[in-house]
């Protein structure tokens, strides 16, 4: 009994922090999305939801968001997997340093890295500059200010998260299991397919989910790297909130984004648990 009281007492600071930083803003968001005014919370209306749902543009934006999220998650996972696998398996004494290096990009802000990518992929950027000076191309390739640029930058920015999630999810991998499989006659390829891949799958899927969620909720990178051409839910919410000042619509869009993607996460987690069972 006393233990339970103690546990509750210990939980209080965390719960309060949750309340202040998560639940209250969420409640505000929900309230605002039903407001009859675009700015203050009064009355009750479903108009903002209706407006968003009947507008084919928002459906297209939602589809764009989904496509961007899936592409970024897919590419980031494919690129992060070998790195994470190497880091998880290496016995090198540089492992710590290498891991730190792999996730070091997290130490700089996404905005800074986005600017970095603008320098690399821009019309007068490193790549176009090199190709032009080598006379391989005449006019610069359009590498940024479109969804390609947004995808590339997001992949790079989110890859460290994928690596971290994978490293955390690779708990069941072990060199000994690989050795056991080899002893039983599995060549390296089959060891990978039958042992390493299935055992690392939970980590891979967690990484994919994390990147997907971060990608679909991003707006700075799609906005800057997309040259304004990449319309995703994040950029729409941002522009409704800050440009047209339709806070209620922005709130409704956010709530829909939240509901849509929390259900994705729930379904995904279910599937994941089944996989691990």
């Amino acid at each position: 009994m006393r233990d339970r009281g103690l546990v509750l007492a210990l939980l209080i600071p965390g719960l309060l922090a949750m309340l202040a930083t998560f639940i209250l803003p969420m409640a505000w968001l929900l309230r605002a999305s039903f407001s009859t005014s675009t700015m203050v919370q009064v009355g009750f209306t479903l108009d903002h939801y209706r407006a968003a749902l009947v507008d084919p543009f928002y459906w297209k934006v939602a589809l764009n968001t989904l496509t961007l999220g899936l592409t970024v998650a897919g590419v980031a996972v494919v690129l992060a997997y070998p790195i994470a696998l190497f880091l998880a398996r290496t016995t090198s004494r540089w492992r710590g340093v290498l891991t730190a290096l792999a996730v070091a990009p997290l130490l700089t802000s996404a905005v800074v890295r986005t600017y970095g990518w603008m320098v690399i992929l821009g019309d007068r950027g490193v790549i176009n500059g090199t190709l032009q000076s080598l006379s391989i191309i005449e006019t610069p390739l359009r590498l940024s200010n479109n969804s390609f640029g947004a995808t590339v930058a997001l992949v790079e920015i989110l890859m460290p998260y994928a690596i971290l999630a994978m490293l955390a999810g690779f708990g069941r991998l072990s060199v000994q299991l690989e050795e056991a499989a080899a002893m039983l006659g599995a060549n390296p390829l089959r060891v990978f397919w039958r042992i390493v891949l299935p055992l690392s799958l939970p980590g891979v899927l967690t990484g994919a989910l994390l990147v997907f969620v971060l990608a679909i909720s991003s707006f700075v990178t799609p906005r800057l790297m997309g040259g304004g051409r990449v319309f995703v839910l994040g950029t729409e919410v941002f522009s409704e909130a800050t440009v047209t000042l339709n806070w209620s619509l922005a709130a409704a869009l956010s709530v829909m984004l939240l509901v849509l993607f929390s259900s994705v996460i729930v379904i995904y987690q279910r599937a994941l648990r089944r996989l691990e069972a």
Binding site: T114, Y115, M118, R124, N145, L224, G227, G228
Partner: peptide, 19 residues
């Protein structure tokens, strides 16, 4: 003709830099 509809950091800097 438009390269970007979202000049970053702003619409002045991209002219200054020659972008």
């Amino acid at each position: 003709n438009v390269l970007t509809w979202e000049p970053a950091p702003d619409c002045y800097a991209v002219v200054q830099s020659g972008e």
